[in-house]
Design a protein around this nucleic acid. Structure first.
Lengths: 74, 74
DNA sequence: TCATATTTCTCCCTATGGGGAGATTCTATC
DNA sequence: GATAGAATCTCCCCATAGGGAGAAATATGA
């Protein structure tokens, strides 16, 4: 499944869905990717005020096993 | 052109190349996407210490016109 | 060479992402 | 209802992304 995302909201939603699909709790995810439950809860919840550093996204990416792509027109 | 990126380094390199392809200076890009030249210079240069907020990535994405995709296996 | 534009840098500042610890609320399951 | 796990929240803290202003260093061109 490949999807483009145009906002942090969208991206975070995809990440959360993915985590649940894999049956992983925030606590487990935190341990697996060297983050704190606090941090994960902060960006998964708190609608509207979600913000992420790219390094955090990469940590999660590795653990949840998805790819990030950039598509340049032409 | 579609490419996956596995690190901030890679992503930033792609962004910089894209900017140059379009013949846009850091100063112009800064104005176009409501960032400061300072900020842009900071992540484009300073190899190794690059870090980005997702919101910044989205601003640049819109201006340079590329898409971001997430690919979930299965 | 000289002039101009571009990029990178320094300092200082503010805003905020993410951590720790602990309390509270949701959600199941019995 | 009770107990347990998960998720969210509050405080407080630290590290740092990004801004402003300006200087220095690197192209680029006449």
């Amino acid at each position: 499944m490949k999807k483009s995302f145009n906002s942090i909201e969208e991206l975070v939603t995809l990440i959360t869905e993915r985590r649940k699909e894999l049956g992983i709790s925030q606590t487990e995810l935190a341990k697996l990717c060297d983050l704190s439950v606090n941090g994960i809860s902060k960006f998964e919840s708190n609608a509207g005020d979600r913000e992420l550093k790219l390094s955090t996204l990469f940590k999660i990416r590795q653990t949840l096993g998805f790819k990030l792509l950039i598509e340049l027109e032409e």
